[in-house]
């Protein structure tokens, strides 16, 4: 157990090191990204830029700059933004993270529950009406862009029908911290959750349906049926457990990527100041410290989510356990 944990940790450090180096190099290879010019401001004299460059250590070799940045990011934790003078990077991300985590975790519960239900029901009624309806609906859910769905939801719940009994409870756009007002937190996130989960419900439902139907071709399903198990038990206990493994693996990827910032469209549409939005702004401003921090934060979650998924997979399928 300890060796597995240590080897995971080692792998995570290697992944994050690689990503940070690549991010760093790409940044300096990007045209117009010279941080000194940006810090010095518009129409600054060449002497000023040179002075700034020297002050910020930007005239030193790249590997020294990289080392300094890692030091200020992880050890002293006082790395500041290049774009917004004085903005401390680490606290900014720390304050944005809970919003993103709340959004993605809630949506994940929703899409796993509904996606699994959709897939199982569709597989049980394969090629019959319930299957066709569910698959049609999930195809639509996958096809509709998140920002469009979000705007439609806002149009209905915030403006057109906001004053009716159905949606009067919907709070204005934005994030309410869980610690200050749990109920407010929940109500504020209901529609963002639905909006973010919709596509994944469709995607996971379709994948699980295909997986279960394929599993029905396996010899051990025939064994289960010949034992005299009911159709429901064969479906839930014997077919679904094998078919759910690829879904769990995909879930790890998706969850990590979303927590790392890929939920940006939902965050922007619902006015949630999350990590995705932060990353987007940093990229727009070519703000290296913020980009670096958000990218590393994202990769951390991808690696962690994958580690959790590996543990889950071993729990579902004991064959994956190493001897």
């Amino acid at each position: 157990m300890l060796t597995i944990f240590l080897s995971r940790l080692l792998r995570m450090v290697i992944v994050m090191l690689g990503i940070s180096v690549i991010t760093f190099l790409i940044f300096f290879a990007t045209p117009g990204s010279d941080p000194a010019a940006r810090i010095a401001g518009r129409n600054a004299a060449p002497e000023t830029i040179a002075a700034v460059r020297h002050d910020f250590g930007l005239d030193r070799p790249l590997y020294v700059q990289y080392g300094l940045m890692m030091d200020r990011l992880f050890i002293t934790r006082d790395l500041t933004s290049f774009a917004n003078r004085g903005q401390k990077i680490v606290p900014t991300i720390m304050s944005a993270a809970p919003a993103t985590l709340s959004l993605v975790a809630g949506a994940a519960i929703l899409w796993m529950a509904l996606g699994a239900t959709t897939g199982i029901i569709a597989a049980a009624f394969r090629n019959r009406l319930p299957d066709k309806i569910l698959m049609g609906a999930s195809m639509m859910a996958v096809a509709m862009p998140v920002f469009w769905v979000g705007e439609m939801i806002n149009l209905v719940t915030q403006s057109r029908l906001h004053d009716t009994w159905a949606f009067s409870w919907v709070p204005p756009l934005g994030y309410v911290p869980l610690t200050s007002d749990p109920a407010g937190w929940f109500f504020a996130l209901v529609f963002p959750w639905i909006c973010l989960a919709l596509m994944y419900i469709g995607l996971y439902g379709r994948m699980l349906r295909t997986g279960i139907i394929e599993t029905y071709q396996e010899d051990y399903i025939r064994t289960a049926r010949s034992k005299g198990l009911s159709a429901r038990r064969v479906l839930l206990k014997h077919a679904t457990r094998t078919a759910i493994i690829p879904i769990v693996i995909m879930f790890g990827m998706d969850f990590g990527v979303l927590v790392g910032g890929a939920a940006v469209l939902t965050e922007v549409v619902f006015g949630i100041n999350g990590v995705g939005r932060l990353t987007y702004q940093a990229l727009k401003a070519l703000d290296l410290p913020m980009i670096m921090a958000t990218v590393l934060y994202a990769s951390f979650f991808v690696v962690v989510a994958n580690a959790i998924v590996d543990v889950l997979c071993v729990m579902i399928d004991p064959r994956m356990r190493q001897k």
Partner: peptide, 14 residues
């Protein structure tokens, strides 16, 4: 009751 040709795949692996 039945038994089958492929004992390798006729038992549920998990």
């Amino acid at each position: 009751a039945m038994i089958f040709q492929e004992p390798m795949t006729s038992l549920h692996p998990i």
